[in-house]
């Protein structure tokens, strides 16, 4: 497998939208999500051959994109404490109002709960995969998932089924 721009382009065309959807669930802002995913692909291009040797390129890109999101979130948290947010978050034009409401509700959750909910429901990762990716115990992932769902349910006014596993 050749790790050149051509290979990255293939992965880009196949995974870009999926990765943005996952990042969007975390950030609640389309612009931020697209920016983080584009940054991950740019790093893949800059990584050259090393990216070609990665077993699961999409997982690699997801991790990079989430790291970008997490770093920006930490940085913005400081500025947010200094003053109100100036611009409202950008939405994905055309998606259902239900989904917009869910994303808006997720924005009010703690970042770690948001992250776990997005990886579990939107990225379709198992609890174990999420634990490995985040470097935490699976019990921690379950705990964050439960709390996140409960909080989200309360926020959107829906009952939450506890069927994760």
């Amino acid at each position: 497998m050749v790790a050149d721009s051509g290979y990255v382009r293939e992965v880009y065309e196949a995974s870009y939208r999926r990765l943005v959807a996952q990042a969007y669930a975390v950030t609640g802002d389309r612009t931020e999500a697209e920016d983080a995913v584009q940054e991950a692909f740019a790093r893949a291009v800059a990584a050259g051959d090393r990216f070609g040797r990665v077993d699961n390129p999409e997982a690699w890109l997801r991790t990079v994109a989430l790291n970008v999101v997490r770093r920006r979130w930490r940085r913005s948290r400081m500025f947010r404490s200094l003053g109100p947010r100036i611009a409202s978050p950008a939405e994905v034009p055309g998606i259902s109002e239900d989904h917009v409401a869910v994303v808006q509700a997720m924005r009010s959750l703690p970042f770690q709960q948001r992250e776990v909910l997005a990886l579990f429901y939107v990225a379709d990762l198992s609890v174990q995969e999420i634990a490995t990716m985040l470097g935490v115990a699976s019990g921690t992932v379950k705990s964050r998932l439960n709390r996140g769902r409960a909080a989200l349910g309360a926020l959107v006014g829906a009952n939450v089924e506890a069927d994760h596993g």
Partner: peptide, 29 residues
Amino acid sequence: MDDRLRTLRSDVEDHLALPEFAVVQARAR
């Protein structure tokens, strides 16, 4: 709630345009 979360991805994917790859290449440079 779970369904809404699970269908979020496909809804976003369906309504998201794929930017030119040149944007990524420029960032890589």
